[in-house]
Each structure stands twice: as C-alpha cells, then as structure tokens.
Design a protein around this nucleic acid. Structure first.
Length: 286
DNA sequence: GTACTTGTTAAACT
DNA sequence: TAGTTTAACAAGTA
C-alpha cells in the first residue's frame, strides 16, 4: 500500500527521468481511472511536458503547464512504472512476479514519450485515479491535507494540541489525512510500536511523555521509510519497478503470532482498530 | 464459496 | 451540530 515514503520514492524516481520529455501520446484503456472526459484529457496531455512533480501526502501532482496539473492517486494497489526504450517492456531484472509484462492486464493508462520511453499506470483493484485540474483546484486539494510528519510545521505542540480532547483511537487520528498527511496502516502501526503506545488507545488519554514519543516516532518511521525507498508488503513497486527496502525493517506490521522484537516476551497481536488490521505487542505497548 | 485485505469518502450514527 | 464510526468501492488471496 503506497504511503508517503512509497509515493515520495516514486516521485523522486520519476522526476529524474520524466521532466522535460515531450508526451507523444497517451492511451486510456480503462476510462473510469481518468476522472476527466477521455478526449479532453488526451487533448491537453498530448504534446505537453511534465515540468515538475510535486507531492502532498500520498497524492502525486504532475505539473503540465502553468494552467494544468495532473493529480495521480495510487490508493491501495496503484503503480506508476517507467520503462526506457533500451530496456523495453517487461524486460530487465525487475520483479516480474509482481509486475509482469508491460503493458499488463492491470495497465489502465500508458504515456508514450518522444524518446521511446513509456510510463505505465497499473492498478489491480482500480481504486486509483488520474485527474487533470487547473491551478486553483490543485491548491484547494492541497489545502485539505494536514502537515507531513517530516515537515517543519508538524511541531510537537501541534501534535499535543491535536490529541487534546480527542475521543477516537490514536490510530484513527494518525490515519486521518486532514490532520497528518502521509501515514497509512503500515507506518501507523510501526509508529505506535516505537512509541510504546497501543493503537486502540483513546487519543486524548495519552500522557505528555507518550504523546511526545509518538510525535517523534511518526517522524522517524516516515524518514526511515523514505531512506529505505518504501515498504513492499503486497504489490508496491517504485517508479522503476523495484521493491522497497523498508519491508525488512518492519517491527510489528505483519508479525502477528510472533514474539515481540523489543520485549521478547509479548506475542504480537492483530485486531481491528479504526476499521483496519492493527498489530501491536500487548506487553510493551500501553 | 467465504472472509479478509486497504485509502478515501460518503453516509450513518451518537 | 459536530464529532466519530462504518460501509462501500474492486479484485485478488488464503
């Protein structure tokens, strides 16, 4: 599931190879993925260039011109994979088991560039979308996101204030993009584990020390996630079709039934919190 | 065949 | 009314 570190990895990968290339053609094989009218979308994109790639939370923002921006959300199973002409489609030493040949049966949109390279949007569950919007709409969408864990405006006092009086679980608060942008199911469980806080705890009941620890651990898991190029748990691949390295760093997510890596005595338990599969150590997370 | 998976949002609930 | 929780979406896996 692409969360902030995965989307940021894709953003960096694609920025290196896509910026300034002329888009020769775009092919839409599943219309519902593109939120615009197909013809309108093709007319604006063809012949244009991506001049910058931004990101807010888990949303990618490709700058097309001073007027238009292409918003791309991968949701749960979306992939954006770039192939240059030399390697060719489906070749090389990429993760064929996940990726298959390109375009594959889950490829819904394909961009072809003037130098023969291509960008494939794949999405097994078809939840993701591409949406071409004007600048004003882009700013409105951006404004709906809270601060990112590694940003300067995600301050300790912001976080303490956020939790104050909240009656929902700490997990629900951390997952809500309007308060903190970029955390998803995996990194929330990891952050709670590092901080020694149970994900099901009512947010407003954390003491000062716990809230401070959790603030730090949110920043830590996101920073490390980016450092290791994201987590491949189900089908995430980076912009060049490779797996993320943070999977090996996970301390609780997916470890249900196994011994806790910190206290060695607790058994990692899986339960539903905020409607999501949630992993924690019942002994050392309070 | 059934239960389960998740990011986001709309709808339902308290 | 506001805050919070749940259902729905889709298609694949166990």
């Amino acid at each position: 599931m692409p969360e902030l570190p995965e989307v940021e990895t894709i953003r960096r990968d694609l920025a290196k190879v896509l910026i300034g290339k002329k888009i020769k053609s775009v092919d839409i094989s599943l219309s519902k993925i593109v939120r615009n009218d197909d013809d309108e979308f093709v007319n604006i994109i063809q012949g244009a260039k991506f001049t910058a790639i931004e990101r807010v939370g888990k949303l990618l923002i490709f700058k097309v011109s001073t007027k238009y921006y292409l918003l791309i959300h991968l949701k749960m199973t979306g992939q954006l994979i770039y192939k240059d002409k030399k390697i060719g489609v489906g070749g090389g030493h990429t993760q064929r088991a996940l990726e298959g040949t390109l375009p594959g049966k889950h490829t819904h949109v394909t961009f072809a560039f003037n130098d023969g390279s291509k960008l494939f949007f794949n999405d097994l569950r078809r939840f993701g979308y591409l949406h071409l919007v004007e600048g004003a709409m882009k700013d409105i969408v951006r404004s709906k996101y809270g601060p990112e864990p590694t940003a300067k405006n995600f301050t300790s006092s912001y976080f303490h204030q956020l939790l104050k009086g909240k009656r929902s679980s700490i997990k629900a608060v951390l997952l809500n993009q309007k308060w903190i942008a970029g955390l998803g199911n995996i990194y929330v469980d990891e952050a709670c584990f590092l901080a020694g806080v149970r994900p099901a705890r009512t947010a407003g009941t954390l003491n000062k020390r716990q809230a401070e620890a959790l603030w730090k651990s949110c920043r830590q898991v996101i920073a490390e996630g980016i450092k290791y190029r994201g987590t491949t748990f189900s089908n995430y691949l980076d912009g060049l079709g490779k797996r993320g390295g943070y999977s090996k760093k996970l301390k609780v997510f997916g470890r249900q039934g196994k011994a806790c890596l910190r206290c060695k005595r607790g058994v990692i338990t899986k339960m539903r919190v905020a409607g999501r599969g949630t992993h924690y150590c019942p002994l050392c997370q309070k």
